[in-house]
Amino acid sequence: MIKKTMRLVITFYTTTEAMAMERACRDAGADGRLIPVPGSIRAGCGLAWCAAPQSEEALSRLMREQGIACEQMLRCLV
């Protein structure tokens, strides 16, 4: 059985943006990891950044500072 928890999920328009996010988070020591885009958000494919819900503010600030655009940022069961 796959156990689900509430997570912050950030989706991107391109793989390149997702990789920029991973690099920025790695350099900043920020929370999260790359996952496949959950089907509950969007059927299809692609990468998403998954982190603890309480990381939203810190990650939003980091993305603004690094000029990283996202498609969606939302909370969902992953």
Binding site: F12, Y13, T14, T16, G44, C45, G46
Partner: peptide
Amino acid sequence: SGVMSYSRTHPQQMPT
């Protein structure tokens, strides 16, 4: 493209 598989058009975002 690895993204937006169900779109009938190719993504417009760079570099994809």
